[in-house]
Structures are given as C-alpha cells and as structure tokens.
C-alpha cells in the first residue's frame, strides 16, 4: 500500500520499507528519531527532501493533496478541535468534499462510543478523553483507508488511554483499516500492533512482528531502548 524508496528528510536518513494493506504498524523509538516526521510524510504534510513515497503504486506527489489526505487520515497527539460543537468538528472533513449526511453524526458517535447527545455539545465542555474521541471521529468521518496515529493517548491519563485503545482496536478491526501508529507505550504497541518498526537516529533499526520483536530484540539498541 505504501512504499518508501530512499526517502530522507531531517532527521530521517534514506528509508526503505513497505507497508501492506490492513497492516497494523507501530513506529517506536527514542524521542527525536523522526517517527512523527514519517507519519507526516505519508499524507504529504511534509515532503521528502530525497527519495519517493508510493501509495497504491503511485507517487504520492501525483495525487491531489486534498484527495490523498482524505484517504490517509491523521489523528494527532493533541485533539486540536475546532471551535464550535462536536457536530461542527466531525462534519468538517466530509463537508469539504460535499459528502456529509446528517445521519452520519450518530454513526460516528457510535464508533467512538460517545452518546449522540454529544453532537450539539460545545467542544470546550468535553474532557480530554472525550476530545480525543471526537478528534478520532472527525478523522473517521472522511472514511480513510489508512489511519495515521501520532501518540493519540500520550496526553491522557492511563484509564482514559485504555478506553481510547479499546475504541481504536475495535474500529481498526471492524473497518479493516491500515494503521500506522507512533507510540512510546510498549504495552499499547503489543495490544494494537502486528508489526513494529524500531526507529532510531533517523533509521529503521529493526523491522519485525509484534510482539515477538519486543520479547526477543535482535539489536543491542532495541534491547537498551526497552530496558529504559
């Protein structure tokens, strides 16, 4: 589905890897190793300085950026909701493409396990966990084929983070989405991922199955990272 060919952009150095449809990939590694940069490259919020990224066999540059971003949804670490109601937020994406249907509101609330009465609630009144659920619903509203998640639970407490994980697990399995997630939480990586890419100093140091690669790390760098 995605192919990186000799892709570099600070702090990444010549990356080569491929991600298949419906894979659940976890990008992990020390801070500053370039994990979020990789995510932003997938939906062209960043451009590589060198190399080529292919999506469905076609250079990402050949897609209109609006279409690519609709198909490759991103959930950021902070919810970054727009001022207004929950409904204003979740219809934002589909409205851009003239695809919003009123009945979708209830459906999306169901996906992220929030009551539909929340639709008319001002986003300022929501808790941190609820805001992140709305952010997730907002991305899902575009019906993406790929879900990019940039540490979506790192700003939340343990309990709320677990609830969001559960929502994510169900959604990804139910909709057969391709998931690429950055996380520092190895428990979360084990729960949600099927493949891990250990990124350090801008390079893919290890690429393997989860949870095997965490149980028996091949490189010294990964061993040390897991012991930290």
């Amino acid at each position: 589905m995605f192919r990186f060919e000799q892709v570099s952009r600070y702090p990444l150095k010549k990356m080569d890897f491929q991600i298949e449809k419906k894979e659940k990939v976890i990008l992990f590694g020390p801070s500053g190793s370039g994990k979020s940069t990789i995510l932003f490259l997938f939906n062209r919020l960043h451009n590589p300085t060198e190399g080529t990224i292919y999506f469905e066999g076609q250079n990402v540059k050949e897609y209109p950026f609006t279409e690519l971003r609709k198909r490759v949804g991103l959930v950021l670490q902070e919810p970054n909701l727009f001022p207004g109601t929950v409904l204003d937020n979740i219809k934002y994406g589909p409205s851009l493409f003239g695809e919003w249907k009123e009945e979708d509101g209830e459906l999306l609330m169901g996906y992220v396990q929030l009551p539909s009465t929340y639709l008319n609630r001002d986003v300022e009144q929501l808790s941190g966990g609820e805001k992140q659920r709305v952010s997730l619903a907002r991305t899902l509203a575009n019906q993406p084929e790929v879900l990019l998640l940039d540490e979506p639970t790192s700003a939340l407490d343990y309990r709320t983070a677990e609830d969001i994980e559960e929502v994510l697990e169900q959604l990804i399995n139910q909709h057969e989405l391709t998931m690429i997630m950055v996380t520092h939480d190895m428990r979360q990586a084990r729960r949600l991922g099927s493949r891990g890419l250990f990124i350090t100093e801008g390079e893919v140091m290890e690429d393997g199955k989860l949870p095997d690669m965490l149980d028996s790390p091949a490189s010294q760098a990964l061993k040390e990272f897991l012991e930290e």
Partner: peptide
C-alpha cells in the same frame, strides 16, 4: 499550528 495541521490533514485547502 495544531488546528491548522488538523484541518489540512482532513483535506482542507489552505484557504479553508
């Protein structure tokens, strides 16, 4: 910055 990234990532053009 975060909101702008969110809007762009949803497919919004810069003007929107």
């Amino acid at each position: 910055n975060g909101r702008l990234l969110a809007a762009l990532s949803l497919g919004a053009k810069p003007s929107v």
